[in-house]
Computed example of a mutant assay.
Amino acid sequence: MPGLAKRAFAEWLGAAFLLATVVGSGIMAQKLAGGNLALALLCNTIPTGAILAVLILMFGPISGAHFNPAVTLAFAIRGDATSRDAAIYVIAQLAGAIVGVWVAHLMFDLQVWQLSLTERTGTGQWLAEAVATFGLLLTIFGVAARTPSALPYAVGLYITAAYWFTASTSFANPAVTVARSLSDTFAGIAPHGVAAFIVAQLIGAILAIPPARWLWAKAT
């Protein structure tokens, strides 16, 4: 297994590329969609699902390609990661995600430091985040247990689908949520909505652990 510094750097760089894609494709979609929100969301969805598959293929052999504190927490609870490694992963993920947002702003000649004004709140959105994260963790645990080579594509396809079947467009990631609060663009979320999203995401991740252990007991 690679050293912790190399693994943490992979998590940082992967999270940065993920957020540069989420925010950058959202900015591009808003520019080109002519006010058609469905088209803009589709143009935001496809690059996000695609980059996830690429990043997991690229960094999975190094760090496991979590890019997500909820995933890291679930692995730590299952005993697949130490608390020290998990803490460093989470710091790297958060830092990388924020850098990715800033890079996206720079690429589109926008002000680097921003706070989102997009309201995303309410019980429906919170439930959506719990469901989205629950499903993401089941996807990871289930596919990793039986067909690990398919995991990059499964995660990318799951997030692509979850953008559309959840009311929140499936953030499903605390680092993504924090970073997107720093972008007043198509993908943004107002900072005061962040805490509830993260709580819902962590609940969804934790709830996925027992059924995953039961469903794939022999493999996990």
Score class of each variant (00 low, 15 high):
Y153V: 08
P174S: 12
S170R: 01
E11G: 00
R146N: 13
R84H: 12
Q30V: 08
F134S: 14
A29P: 11
V54N: 06
V178N: 02
K6N: 08
V155Q: 13
Q30N: 14
A97G: 15
A16T: 04
D80W: 09
G26H: 05
A70N: 08
E11M: 04
L57R: 05
Q114F: 05
L106Y: 10
F75T: 04
D80P: 07
G3K: 14
E119S: 14
T82A: 10
H66K: 05
V54P: 00
V103L: 15
I140A: 10
K6F: 00
V155M: 08
G96I: 09
A104I: 13
V23A: 02
F186S: 07
G122S: 05
C43L: 15
E129Q: 12
I198W: 02
R84P: 05
A8Q: 06
T147K: 14
A87M: 11
D109I: 00
K6Q: 12
A190P: 07
A205M: 09
M107I: 11
G26E: 10
I88R: 13
W216A: 01
W214S: 11
M58Q: 12
A195I: 12
V199H: 01
P174K: 05
T123I: 12
V23F: 08
I140Y: 07
L136R: 04
V54E: 09
I159S: 01
A53E: 02
T123V: 09
L18M: 15
T123H: 07
V103F: 11
P61N: 01
H105I: 07
A187W: 00
F67D: 01
I77N: 14
P211S: 03
L117Y: 00
L32S: 14
I98L: 07
V112N: 01
G24V: 12
A205L: 04
M28Q: 11
I27V: 14
